[in-house]
Simulated scan of single mutants.
Amino acid sequence: MPETPNPPTRRPLRFGAVAPFTTDLPTWTDSLRSLADSGYSTVLMPDTPQWQPAPGPALAVAGSVTGLRVGTWVYACPVRPPWMTAWEAHSLSVLTEGRFEMGIGTGRPGIADQLRDLGIPVDSSRSRSDQVRDVIVALRELDGTDRHTPVVMAVSGPRAQALAAELADTVTFVMPQLETRAETTRRVRQFDNSRDLELALHVPVVGDGVAPFMAGPDTDAAAVRAADSLAHLPSDPAAATDEILRRREELGFSHFVLGADVAGPLAQVVADLAGK
């Protein structure tokens, strides 16, 4: 596939934080307020059944506590019927007065084992991609003509990329954490971004810290850093600032998604760069 000939639009930077509920309620809500004070635009919740509260209710609380945008990072489409996912997404868009973004994908690695544990049939990857389409189509029907809930698609293979090129508002690339900068650059530049979609970058590793729910428990931060992977940002503020600006200029990434548990060293970076 030829590389995209035209560079993407240079968008203002924005930052999202994956903030799973892993403590008591007061501690979690305090952490959300801290994110808001640091310049984050969006509080994001993973879709991990039985590990934490369901994303819908948690995001409704997060939206009321912070006034920030909220979103799923990301709905695993095989876990629930497509129409139910669309209904929840539309409801969150209504209840937050348009501050909800529906992140969706076909499921994290190991989704087949999770589905078996939940007693849900394990479909092919093609069927799961069709389910994503069904969710988005149902969401658009529920939104009607007066509302447009933004859709963020997590994509890997060509089928998912083609669907995102057709229907998504924002795209994030599912990539091996040890993928080199050169390999990721090739992946991004081969994506058909003729609709000039927003590009988001999932960054689970900051310095030596690995964000839970964003990377596997066996992730080696040193190996990720040594690979020059875009899954890593340095914890030094000046170096992180340079990297964020470089990734926007070279590849078009303008939405950076970090883990709330490891992003503390970059709080000032986020505050300084958000919206610029």
Results as ranks from 00 to 15, higher is better:
residue 209 G to F: 00
residue 225 R to W: 10
residue 227 A to G: 12
residue 229 S to I: 02
residue 217 P to A: 10
residue 210 V to R: 00
residue 224 V to Y: 01
residue 230 L to N: 08
residue 227 A to Y: 10
residue 229 S to Y: 08
residue 233 L to Y: 02
residue 220 D to R: 04
residue 233 L to R: 01
residue 232 H to T: 08
residue 223 A to T: 11
residue 220 D to G: 05
residue 219 T to Q: 11
residue 225 R to N: 09
residue 234 P to S: 09
residue 237 P to Q: 02
residue 228 D to I: 06
residue 216 G to H: 11
residue 217 P to L: 05
residue 223 A to H: 13
residue 237 P to I: 02
residue 219 T to W: 09
residue 227 A to P: 12
residue 238 A to R: 14
residue 220 D to C: 03
residue 229 S to K: 05
residue 234 P to E: 08
residue 218 D to T: 13
residue 226 A to N: 13
residue 230 L to Q: 09
residue 228 D to L: 07
residue 226 A to R: 15
residue 236 D to G: 12
residue 211 A to F: 02
residue 215 A to S: 07
residue 216 G to V: 03
residue 220 D to A: 08
residue 214 M to Q: 04
residue 227 A to H: 09
residue 231 A to C: 14
residue 233 L to W: 06
residue 211 A to E: 03
residue 221 A to F: 05
residue 222 A to S: 15
residue 224 V to G: 02
residue 214 M to N: 02
residue 217 P to F: 11
residue 237 P to Y: 02
residue 222 A to R: 15
residue 218 D to F: 13
residue 224 V to Q: 04
residue 235 S to F: 07
residue 233 L to M: 07
residue 213 F to W: 14
residue 230 L to A: 08
residue 210 V to Y: 00
residue 219 T to H: 11
residue 210 V to K: 00
residue 238 A to I: 11
residue 210 V to E: 01
residue 225 R to A: 14
residue 212 P to T: 11
residue 209 G to H: 01
residue 229 S to F: 06
residue 222 A to D: 15
residue 217 P to K: 08
residue 233 L to C: 06
residue 236 D to V: 06
residue 218 D to G: 13
residue 233 L to H: 02
residue 220 D to Y: 03
residue 220 D to S: 11
residue 212 P to I: 05
residue 211 A to C: 11
residue 218 D to W: 14
residue 237 P to M: 01
residue 230 L to E: 06
residue 231 A to V: 02
residue 224 V to S: 03
residue 226 A to M: 09
residue 212 P to G: 12
residue 210 V to T: 01
residue 213 F to L: 13
residue 225 R to L: 10
residue 210 V to P: 00
residue 236 D to M: 05
residue 231 A to L: 05
residue 213 F to E: 10
residue 231 A to W: 01
residue 217 P to T: 08
residue 236 D to C: 08
residue 223 A to W: 11
residue 209 G to T: 03
residue 236 D to R: 04
residue 216 G to C: 06
residue 229 S to C: 09
residue 214 M to Y: 04
residue 229 S to N: 07
residue 236 D to E: 14
residue 237 P to S: 02
